[in-house]
Design a protein around this nucleic acid. Sequence first.
RNA 1: GUGGGUAUAGCUCAGUUGGUUAGAGCGUCUGGUUGUGGCCCAGAAGGUCAAGGGUUCAAGUCCCUUUACUCACCCCA
Length: 419
Amino acid sequence: MIKAIKGAKDLFYDEVVRWQALEKLVREIFENFNYSEIRTPVFEETRLFARSIGEETDIVSKEMYTFTDKSGLSITLRPEMTASVVRAFIEHSLGKQFNLNKFYYIAPMFRQERPQAGRLRQFHQFGAEALGSSSPSLDAEMIILAYEILKQLGLKKLSVKINSLGSPAEREEYRKVLREYLKPHYDKLSETSKVRFEKNVLRIFDSKDERDIEIMKDAPRLLDSLGEESSAFFEEVKELLSKAGVEFETDTALVRGLDYYTHTTFEIVSESVGAQSALCGGGRYDLLAEQLGGTPTPGVGFAAGMERILLACANEEIEVGKKEKVKLYIVRIEKELKNKAFELALFFRRHGIKTELDYLSRSVKAQMREANRIEAEHVLILGGEEFLKNEAVLKNMSDGSQKNVSLANLEAVLKEISG
RNA sequence: GUGGGUAUAGCUCAGUUGGUUAGAGCGUCUGGUUGUGGCCCAGAAGGUCAAGGGUUCAAGUCCCUUUACUCACCCCA
């Protein structure tokens, strides 16, 4: 048997209903905040991700689906969306059309990791990117947006963590300070942290190794060494969040894994999923556009993992979405009437009534059972003596009542069903 | 990439210290009188017990290998 690729899932029936409901909510909220949807190709030139996400990151160094196409070009299935959005922004000179561009997306991403709860190889994210403003109100808006969606879904066990990585200069300065602090402890660090010491010191904060955590406990914090401007920026973000009623905590150890972040970074975690508890994360990336060869343009964004969100909803027993019931099921008694039934079904369907009928030449009893199974609201029974009078029986399935209706006046039947 | 767990019907799972034709619930299908659902009743279909090898008179059950799934590490959304 040929099966789906590891870490890639088929969705159908009830599961799809949940996804559609989530997508609908996401769209509504993004539209309210006046974000417009952006769609970019699922694959890009490999160097786009190498340059933006960072060569040394795990994503780029070992998790990408990369292949060479027939022209010899190295292509990669996108592992995240920010790089693509910024690429499109630069390619189409969108910054020259509008000073501020606010985009959202709902799209599949690909990373070749070992699947586990809340982590797939083809996974789906919704997210937003705002390019062109360095106002802290946008940083706050991103967090509020993400929070709003999760709240409106009904999720409870959430915590919002925020931090600031400061300006690039401050970050660079802090790197030195941190290295200085770590030097005497170097030998006690875990192997991965030793590597990070050279390549990306900040990431040592992410370590779960107990000895690393012990060492990092007393490490100087980037947040404490921020300049006046960066501090004021961060304060304003926090103030806006407080006014918006978003409860958050400052987590000085929150260092995001992607190289392009500056200033605000944030994460919303849930207790209701497994180990992969981050439902969404993001931050500001003022250097990225320039880094990708565009004119310097400040940006902020976030991405949220849809599988994780739905998993959290399921674990908190939140029902997401409801399937629309069939309004009318057409039962035919005599088999010769099957085309008449088909024709009638088409009439109702064309008038916006969700209609179903038998395609399996089944008995009347079986057709009724089917109508009941799919919870059809009404059944129209076609045949017998009523049909000779150009009438049919319309049955209300919830109370079992039925009445004869004229097939010469389908408008009246429409009214009956819709009312 | 490294660990742990699991693998029996479409789904959720039983299957006793290895012992005859492998079970249940749900789901599906048919019927319980002519043209009517739900509840109930009766019946049916559906399984190379993940695959391969080994031990044994005898393996779903014990051992080995492989594969898949799953959880965790790692990383991240």
